[in-house]
């Protein structure tokens, strides 16, 4: 559940919702059909996006497997896919806190510990740059803030 919505219900226990609270609830509910539809598109085109990113990203790090082992590219794609899925879920819920709490706070420290922020930065830029060529303007713009948040926290 959207964390703001959950907090709203918690705080409103034993009383009626105020007009502004009802309005934000209405806006959230009315936005759900659109978010569900876009979520399905983002899901169906995940591999197209990742293929595009990996195709451009791999040549920029020709020595990655030497430094991080033969599974490095497989793990890279897996991690990018994981970030994408959490972004999609956060978009569906209209909830950036979900993305931060469930993934980014943790992954941020893990990337730092492997000293991989600089290496990974182009991949997130490529993801953002590829949105417009794979998705419609509406789809791109609704997912972009979440992907941007992930990029900012993970690789700066």
């Amino acid at each position: 559940m959207n964390s703001m919505f959950a907090e709203l219900l918690q705080n409103a226990e034993g009383r009626y919702l105020h007009p502004d609270e009802l309005e934000s609830l209405r806006a959230y509910v009315e936005g759900i059909p659109k978010r569900v539809r876009i979520y399905q598109v983002l899901h169906s085109k995940e591999s197209v996006l990742l293929d595009r990113v990996m195709e451009k990203f791999q040549p920029t790090l020709p020595h990655l497997t030497r430094r991080h082992g033969i599974l490095a590219w497989e793990r890279c794609r897996r991690d990018l896919g994981m970030v994408w899925r959490y972004c999609c879920m956060a978009m569906l819920l209209n909830d950036e806190d979900y993305l931060r709490d469930k993934l980014l706070y943790w992954l941020e420290t893990i990337l730092k510990s492997f000293k991989m922020r600089d290496e990974c930065r182009p991949a997130y830029k490529l993801m953002l740059d590829s949105l417009a060529s794979i998705f419609t303007a509406e789809e791109s713009e609704i997912i972009r803030p979440y992907l941007l948040l992930a990029k900012t926290m993970l690789v700066g």
Partner: peptide
Amino acid sequence: SNLLFLLETWWW
């Protein structure tokens, strides 16, 4: 294990 990853995992 990688030392820094290990330490991050311990502290989380």
